[in-house]
Design a protein around this nucleic acid. Structure first.
Lengths: 260, 260
DNA sequence: TTTTGTGTTTCATATAATGAAACATGATTG
DNA sequence: CAATCATGTTTCATTATATGAAACACAAAA
């Protein structure tokens, strides 16, 4: 572990609940030597990454991060965070990975990637995704506000004979998504396709999109479902982080309580 | 200079116009050894402060800064106050509104907003603002302590043939800012751009930044200048209040004595 | 006053950072 | 198509710098 890493890692002890930390606290938190920690903190302060209260001597996150986050916000598109994980998600599962972003009242495709492992693969060619009939849509809806849910229920139309359009039934499905942590939809938009999706979050701390794996239902077994879910969780964390968000603690705990 | 400082300082080469930098670029920019820089970058990447494009190998500001800036906003809300007024300021005036924050010895961009009214508009893409050549910088300098003023004068370089760099002349301009209550700078940093700025204050009761309107000089008339000044005063009061500060009474009285 | 908990400085030592060189890998070019 | 160039990465000896024990300074409790 390099000196740089050790120093910068000190920043990770800050949180919204713990915005100020003193040297003695850091010493206890890290278990590292007092002098060493002191100098790490001093170095970080000189860069503006940390700021020290002149009277209490307590440290807090410095103003430099504002500048950097401004740069990232205006220059790094949402797609960049998705592109870093989507190919991997597709290749590891051998299926088609897909990411979508919530734009106003519609859920639109941001990027997708199909694995070349099988000759039969799911080809997604819909720019706009119907909420009620897709795994991605339901993943978003399960964590969206009532207004969007209302809007989606009103728009609900049947695409196959298995599409659920009844609000009461949809509500029950959404509840299932929240309790299991995953949105699973089969043959509801397109016959023979099983979609599994999880929601994505951005810096507004609200749901901002979803990442999904669409697979050919006939070849899916329990082991593959478990693999997909594991990979989706990792992908969701990574993309959300890239977007400046975090997975809500409640959802995280749901995921960790279900072994998969 | 510690290893930590050297590494973190690499982040300062990023800006809105230069969002991606490669190892070879850093090598040229810093003049430091290639291997050393490589490891600094690797260390920063492992902390999330940087992110590397998998294909181009170029580095960009990483997602960790988003998390930290969110934490900072919770403790020291600076952007929130600015975002409340900046869009309005831009739309009412039809020009580009800009807010900056004083960070140690440098004045950095906090946020900006360009009105869509005219096709020709001022695009601000400088993260760090030179004090002597910008309206924002002079607004801050007029109310800053001598140490900062000294530092700014020493750094003064000419950007256009209209840039003032002579300390005596700059001092006279600062005096003008204090007596009129506004910092007006034309074509000093960029040709054809007229900037009007006022200082911002925080809970330390010292100058903490500035808010400005940058306009295309050719279309500015007296009525627009008056409108911009009126709006700037309102914006400065609002932002300063949200930062826990107030406009010094002397400046307030200067503003009220000039009809605009 | 003494004690306890802070943050800061000093100094010898050990460790980790450094840079030249070599290597690997694509791009460009002749 | 080979040769050259530009780039990123690894190796290894050397040197610089990070480290931690101790001592110091200072404030707030006891």
């Amino acid at each position: 572990m390099s000196t740089v890493t050790k120093a910068v890692d000190l920043l990770n002890f800050f949180s919204a609940e713990r915005a100020e930390i003193r040297l003695a606290d850091f010493q206890r938190l890290t278990g590292r030597d007092k002098t060493t920690t002191y100098r790490h903190l001093s170095a970080l302060e000189s860069t503006g990454l940390l700021e020290q209260d002149a009277t209490t001597r307590a440290y807090r996150i410095g103003p430099a991060v504002l500048r950097f986050s401004h740069i990232r916000e205006v220059t790094v598109p949402r797609r960049a965070g998705v592109r870093m994980v989507l190919p991997g998600l597709a290749e590891v599962t051998g299926e088609t990975a897909h990411a979508s972003i919530l734009q106003g009242n519609t859920l639109v495709t941001l990027a997708d990637h199909a694995s070349a492992r099988h000759s039969a693969r799911v080809v997604l060619d819909n720019a706009v995704l119907p909420f009620h009939a897709t795994a991605s849509g339901m993943a978003v809806l399960a964590f969206a506000d009532d207004k969007l849910k209302q809007h989606a229920f009103e728009q609900a139309e049947a695409f196959t004979d298995q599409t659920v359009v009844d609000p009461t039934q949809l509500e029950a499905l959404l509840h299932r998504v929240r309790t299991t942590g995953f949105s699973e939809v089969e043959s509801s938009f397109e016959k023979g396709v099983l979609g599994i999706a999880v929601p994505l979050f951005d810096s507004s701390l609200k749901v901002a999109g979803s990442v999904a794996v669409a697979s050919v239902a006939s070849r899916v077994d329990d082991a593959l479902v478990k693999l997909i879910k594991r990979e989706l969780v990792t992908a969701a964390r990574s993309i959300s982080t890239s977007w400046g968000g975090t997975i809500p603690t409640q959802l995280e705990s749901v995921w960790s309580s279900h072994s998969f």
